[in-house]
Design a protein around this nucleic acid. Sequence first.
RNA 1: GCGGGUGUGGCGAAAUUGGCAGACGCAUCAGACUUAGGAUCUGACGCCGCAAGGUAUGUAGGUUCGACUCCUAUCACCCGCACCA
Length: 983
Amino acid sequence: MEYNFRKIEEHWQSEWKKNEVYKVSNDSPKPKYYVLDMFPYPSGAGLHVGHPLGYIASDIFARYKRLKGYNVLHPMGYDAFGLPAEQYAIEHGIHPAVSTDQNIKNFRAQLDKIGFCFDWSREVRTSDAQYYKWTQWIFLQLFKSFYNRKTQKAESVESLINIFAEEGNINHPIPNSQFVIPNPQFQIRNSQFSPTQWSSFDEFTQQTILMEYRLAYCGYGEVNWCEALGTVLANDEVINGVSERGGYPVVKKKLRQWYLRITEYADRLLEGLEKIEFSDAMKEMQSNWIGKSYGAEIEFEVKSEESGVGSLRVYTTRPDTIFGVDFMVIAPEHELISSFKTKEQKQAVDEYVAYVKSRSDRERQAEKKITGCFTGAYAINPFNEKEIPIWISEYVLAGYGTGAIMAVPCGDERDFKFAKHFNIPITNIIGKHYNGEEANPTKDAVLENSDFLNGIVMRDAIEVANNKIEELGIGKKKVNYRMRDAAFSRQRYWGEPFPIIWNNGIAYPLDEKELPLILPEVEKYGPGPDGEGPLANLKDWAHVSLSSGEGRGEVLRETNTMPGYAGSSWYFLRYMDPHNSETFCDRKVSDYWGQVDLYIGGTEHAVGHLLYSRLWTKALHDLGYIGHDEPYKKLVNQGMIQGSSRFVYKISWHGFFKTDFDVSKLPIILVSKSFRDGFVHNQQEIIQLLDKAISDILIGIGFVPNFVIMDLHVDVNIVDGVELDINEFKKWRNGEYADAKFILEDGKYICGSEVEKMSKSKFNTVNPDDLVTRYGADTFRMYEMFLGPVEQSKPWDTKGIEGVHRFLKKLWRLFYDDLKGKVWNDEKANDAELKVIHKTIKKIEEDTERFSFNTAVSAGMIAVNELGDLKCHKKEVLEKLLIILTPYAPHIAEELWHQLGNTGNILDAAYPKSEERYLIESTKNYPVALNGKTKSELNISLDATQQQVEEIILANETVQKWLEGKQPKRIIFVKNKMINVVT
RNA sequence: GCGGGUGUGGCGAAAUUGGCAGACGCAUCAGACUUAGGAUCUGACGCCGCAAGGUAUGUAGGUUCGACUCCUAUCACCCGCACCA
């Protein structure tokens, strides 16, 4: 009986399905464990071998935990809204729901073949109305809430209104300090109002103010606008100021957008990092992204050719350097530019601003060239009346701080380069610490040229300067965050509609009873007018007449839709209670499952999804809907599987031909790698061989035209290692190369190779289906793990899968011989065998616990090799081996488990215990080193003391030979490790 | 420009706390079995060297009895980004 993996896997997959063995209950006496994979977008391209890596890891862990006696939740579903489906709809007229559904079917079929233990009865899709009903509902909760800075949590806007009526907003200032209350008739200073003023505001003013507090709010933001496409583009869709698709110009445009007020949660998101198990790198990325900084906002009077142009407020983390300020830089978007600029500089400023407007944020970021423009205006240093020129440059961003900085070239590298480039004189305030060659960002220098700060160490001067600034009333201390509020709307079709209606510029929430607000059908998926989304084209849908409730009358629906991360910010809660029609997730159920215990996914979500879902969790927690305020207890980041591309080398003719010579008549010639390498490196012998080979092929033409050699990607699936399968190649791409001629080496065509991102266009994708068909799911799963540590990126190479497949065949042969049939028996295991199995239990258990799945697979291989050497076919030993391997290779383990006469699912067996008594050793082969270099080995009892070891060592002939009669200075002995003789 | 990560044989890797570098597997080579082998088994396999031995974890230094592991500098590659004052 041989290992028939196809039959076995098919059989058990259908058994598992039939018996619902992976169905999980919300009610169990067992402890719970929640294993989650990052929400996949079902792309039309299907799975390649890189995708299931994380799913296999989580599946192994889920099965392992179940063996360990946990009630394990391991769900899967789809982040089904997304741009690709919409783009496909625009191009092919297919409804995104239709193509998405098709993609999900393919995706599911691919997943099923790998034998995952997902509880599919809990599947969710974000595009299902029964799912997005609750996404809309949570949005409404955010809309109806504000962040109470006093209590440090989200509370209802209703309670805020009560506070305003009683005490105004004196204790609850508007989060955006730049905000100006619109209606001048109320004469509000610093956006602070009293209870009387509050009640005197009209509804529009009140609502406009409340909008400034809501956790989900509507505002205006700049986007990449492409007029020709009539649509908004993401940064990476803009290249050199034009659209990636079509190459049309792209400009900045202000559009009405929804936002989530994530900045109010900045501190809690930062603090929360301390109580969750994310990698240090991940925590660092998140805290850098949040970017909390302590500094000061300082107000500078501005002098331009006209008086009364106002003042400039800058944000700085280094107020101690105030006397080293040689110029100011303001963002090109800064509102005050038009009042600052002088007549003389007007043209230059306008041109510069227009130039920046054409550039994407990404380009502004990556720009090495120093650009900028003088406004003609000067800021006055309040301490010494010095006139400081005000410049504009793209390196200052409008969205951070006040959009203006004070530049200190002796202390900041970027400011220094800017000053040098524009010949701005540099003031030195740190004496010898500044060498004139480069800036020195130190905080430890003693200040000079700094008036009242002279002689103070910079680090201490920060506080002194801050106090002085506050004392003089020219500024105040300020904590700033690099993070900005999260844009929460898209001018697109395929997303959740907002449950919002507009009446006279006021946004009203839809009654919760009216949810879900169904995404309507549209005739075309193209953009609406004036940068609005496709929903704006639906006049009948967008215009509604409401007879009752808030905002009654002739009203307009919100036509933006929610972004991709809306549905994925809370899906882990819906999995707990996926079919509940009363609430998004029953509180009792979320209290049972609580946090996700293990979350596996890529680092690409470091600062997007992982921050947004943490925000939603905190808000839902504050509002009392769930009991925990961090969604994930532990996060493991899987590395990327890169593609390993293969190349063929094609002769490309170029040069002069007689006019009647038809180049296209020349055959396609492909040369093997050595010829190409010799040609590229100009090795004469190889070039001669190549010329000879070509002229043999071109016989009858009489000469060899000039040529170059082109590298072409070839499908990795028709290359065995690096050897091209010529027959398959001739059939490839509909026979494009059917008549090609080949110049071989040793009778083979050798391809070049390179590690690149896995993608269809590079022909380096490998489909898991093919591998499962050839080797089986168990082999595929184990090989994905065997490739290397999950966290690390590594290139895919199909070749190595044979080794893992051989391992499973060897495992099978411990039970069944191809000729003899059953070989397993009920004999009693001996010490050697027990030692092997207990050592392996320990190793695989420890490795699985620390997510070192690659070494666990090796441990399995070693065990099978050793049991093979011992000719051990004993059920007592093999049964244990099956249980510890079942998370990795569930099908073969289940089959053999039953072959051994067991009934019931192997996952319900108990994980075997490794017993130390089988592992105890009495002696060890100690490596003996001379001055740290290992020279030989000595077998010494583990009980030996330092003194005994020294005696043994000194008595040893080999050691005496090295010593050449000298006494060693020291003998270092580390028990159970090594011995080092120092001379 | 900023942030994060990774560099070990021909290849994927291992070395869990500073203690025998290269476990395990691929590829390669040699052999056994066989009518046959793309099955199976045995052995060799970092590099230089016939060997003794030397040398080796991106590069250059340092700490240590001892460094893939810790420190400093530097180079290369990969990923992310909202140029964060």
